[in-house]
Design a protein around this nucleic acid. Structure first.
Lengths: 218, 218, 218, 218
DNA sequence: TATGAATGAGTATTCATTCAT
DNA sequence: TATGAATGAATACTCATTCAT
């Protein structure tokens, strides 16, 4: 509240300012990704959209990949929020699982570029060493957090921890595969609705869970 | 049979030589994809690996994308062969479906770069107009052919055409999603074996098919 | 009529065949120039339009520039024909001069690409040494021949040889300049009609000639 | 006046420095044009002569054509200066017209490459869309400004606006044609002096003007 | 904290030409 | 007489990144 308080405030303000600029850049990057796709998302383009010089970004980020990584992180955070909010109104475990899984699917169905981002960064489209362990773990954590409601619902339905994890993988994998088919237009090849298929899959998982849980109880 | 035969032979040889060169380049391209990934697969890199000048490739291919497309085509052809061969020894429909699906999965599990290729080309990572309708349809056809054994087996198990198609999509999507998790190392996150999960999924599909087929019969 | 006659015939035919192929190529080149302009007139393009491989042209021509030169030569020949034919029906020297000059102008007004060709080849847009003395002189001769009717008419109007030459240069230069303005659209800058201006100029030359010729006679 | 003045100075210096670099590049481009001609004036060549990397030019110019356009603009500016200065010492309208026209002619007689530039850029040797309307108009304006003294002198000699414009076109076209003949060596064909012919032409224009002006007065 | 300036490596593609066949 | 194959040099332009200021 005196000097040190003032310093703190100043530091806080300073940090906030810096953070704001990062925010600005990241938002610009997100926008570029959305409109231009991955190929068009050059540092120059991002900088331009943010109202900066390319060189200026290097004060806020170590490299282009670092920007990418953080954009992905935010994307995962938004995904997490969306899933969490969707599940909020549901009380029954079955509905919670279904809703959570479909929210996950819906997010990427509506935001194909976010899926691209994930594909790109989670794969090798990057510098030799990738993002670095630290970043990688942070991303993993964000993804896990987004999927937690599914796992929780599975547990609520009587699954053990390990079994719940498998349900999650199953939903995740299935959703991802369907989304790929959806966004590449390949799903038309099979004359199928991606989201209907996803719902089917989820419901089958739920049924299986119930079955095994009943069996365990008996 | 003599002179004209000689001419024919020469023409044949010429064609064969040209084909060999194409082969050489395509093999080089495949190799570059495998070791350098998609981003590193520039025309010069491919040319260099093939022992050619970049300009020389343009004698054999119209563009870089044309090379890409053909490499993908071959990849799909190899996939098709693998699935077809795997299914050859199986007579029972259940086993045929399971084997076919697992062969599909196995191919991409062992050849991650082929998966990359498919992702890349089937998505928008290409020139504005993509590969052109013709090429696109050829690729679709090759993919469909590779998946046919799965559909056939489903039909043999009593599925109608449309239902069989859904089984295929289901397997395809699930496999794709699991492969993505596998190749990005994300599957460890869930402490799961991709191929075991795939097998589970397939068997569940088979069980569902049998169930509905029995119901229909009754 | 016997052996040597047969040989002659064969040789003639051979020469004719070769000539025909040259013709074919030159016509292709002309067509390419006309539709694609100078920049688009690559050897490959010319060869393609002629139904040949680029390499094949080297059997008939020494270089790309040689093709250009011959196309220009033919262009000048056509120009010559046009002027000569236009003048054919005129008997009166005044009308002959006017008609010849306007035919020259008209040819290039209607065939802008031919003007381009002349500009390009007569200037430095070529290999260090240009076309070689021989070719250059041939082109000069063709141009001179095309302009001869103007000179002749001037002489018929009483001009000495040297004076007649000046009339030719004057018409040639004026036409060229106007054509340049015409084909670049710059003439609109001055709200003027190129061909009307040309006619004015020619008539002024004629008047001047008459004046000086009358003076000389007196 | 201190801090803000310093900032201004810095900004000024910055702008000046940038301008200097542009100047450097443009001068290099001009030099390349002069020694290598248009065909040899590649970006790399210009960059090399300026002591730069090709990429560096893109910091100062948007494209190769932008460099071309600016070089041409400067060329026209120099032309304008030359004409304006030549006319400065003349007071009598007749002499002003003659001097202005001959200065125009003289400029291009002495700087053939500037003529080339004009030919190239004013014609279609450019990107599909040319230089863009804006640039095109700026170039037109520069050319018009250079020719204005001729028009003004014609008006001073009693010509109406439209008639003056025609005099300008006439001189411009004639000069251009003669210059073409001159620089291609074709004028020797006619054993004529280009500048003498130009002077003749101009004087004839002046005489005509006087004549019509006298007639109008009477 | 940001910019202006620059780099060097890279991109796909085109060109005229050559040569063995 | 013609081709298929290849070359080497060239083209304009883009990129992520660096550094002095």
């Amino acid at each position: 509240m005196d000097q040190s308080g003032g310093a703190k405030t100043r530091r806080k303000r300073g940090r906030t300012k810096a953070q704001e600029k990062r925010e600005l850049i990241l938002e610009a990057a997100r926008a570029v990704f959305e409109t231009e796709g991955l190929e068009g998302a050059s540092l120059r383009a991002i900088a331009a959209r943010a109202g900066y010089t390319p060189a200026a970004l290097y004060f806020h980020f170590d490299s282009k990949e670092a920007v990418y990584a953080e954009v992905l992180h935010r994307s995962l955070a938004r995904l997490g929020t969306r899933v969490a909010e969707a599940v909020l109104t549901e009380t029954e475990p079955t509905a919670r699982l279904r809703t959570a899984a479909m929210a996950f699917f819906g997010f990427y169905a509506e935001n194909p570029r976010d899926l691209d981002l994930g594909f790109y960064l989670f794969r090798g489209g990057m510098k030799p060493a990738g993002l670095g362990r630290e970043r990688d773990e942070a991303l993993n954590a964000a993804l896990e957090a987004a999927l937690r409601p599914i796992a929780d619902a599975a547990v609520a339905l009587g699954a053990e921890k390990r079994q719940a994890a498998l349900v999650v993988v199953d939903c995740f994998a299935h959703a991802t595969g369907l989304l790929l088919l959806l966004h590449t237009g390949r799903i038309r090849m099979f004359d199928a609705s991606a989201s209907a298929l996803m719902l089917d899959h989820v419901d089958r998982q739920i049924a299986a869970l119930r079955h095994s849980s009943n069996a365990a109880r008996a």
